[in-house]
Simulated scan of single mutants.
Amino acid sequence: MAKIGKRTATARKAFEGKTIVSVEEAVALIKSVASAKFDETLEIAMNLGVDPRHADQMVRGVVQLPNGTGKTVRVAVFARAAKADEAKAAGADIVGAEDLLEAIQGGKIDFDRCIATPDMMPLVGRLGKILGPRNLMPNPKVGTVTMDVKTAVEAAKGGEVQFKVEKAGVIHAGIGKISFSDEKLAENVRAFVEAVSKAKPAGAKGAYLKKVSLSSTMGPGVALDLASAAK
């Protein structure tokens, strides 16, 4: 505990006076103090001027990060026959129909993304109360209900990140690993911010992007200069 406390104190001291910085400055600062024994994730938090309780202010979408997330994503696909074969060939970790339904109902959820062909949705719909709270429910708006399962699986495996605003108007996501180069992390930051900016709902009023912060898994956060993040 003493070592952890010392590392935290050192990190916070390095952040003193750094209130609002450019993307490049933030990435360099965060990497300089990241000292966990594992490869920490660079995390982004965006405070938006929306109230997601209103349907016309919901923010949801997907972004293909130019340099991936550095995370191994396990993909489950609901499909039959030729589409099931297509999913397996594309690298899906789990492919099934009724058998996959039963496994999930039994509490076995060992995947990070769930994809389904449209004809499977009546079956998948039974899992709404299980997959919905985990943000795993297939949805055509983010490309996880599709006949093109090959593209969907490859995108999920290749660094695609889904985002959805939370009740407090915040979007949070992991967008790379601290071991990535500064340049790759900066590219991922701007790609994510751009995607969320483009997803601005019609009902949003006033300032949409209110605050954007970066942090590592175990480190303190720093606010970004919005002009720098939006470039």
Results as ranks from 00 to 15, higher is better:
V193M: 06
N135R: 15
V124E: 01
M46P: 03
V62T: 15
V50F: 04
G128C: 07
G203H: 04
A116N: 00
R113V: 14
E166K: 08
P138E: 04
A152P: 05
N188H: 12
K150C: 02
N47K: 10
K18P: 06
N139K: 07
E102I: 02
M46V: 14
E187R: 13
P133C: 05
N135K: 15
A191N: 06
P66A: 10
A207V: 14
L48R: 04
A36E: 12
P140R: 02
D225K: 13
G143S: 13
I94E: 05
A199E: 04
G132L: 01
G91H: 05
I130A: 03
G219H: 02
I171D: 04
K211E: 11
V161E: 07
L136W: 06
P133S: 08
A81P: 03
G159L: 07
A103K: 14
E98G: 14
T144M: 05
L29P: 08
K177M: 05
D99K: 12
K164L: 15
V161G: 00
A168F: 12
G203W: 03
K177C: 00
G70P: 03
I115T: 06
D51E: 10
A89S: 12
M147D: 11
K211Q: 13
A103C: 08
V33C: 04
A155P: 00
G169P: 02
R80S: 07
D93G: 09
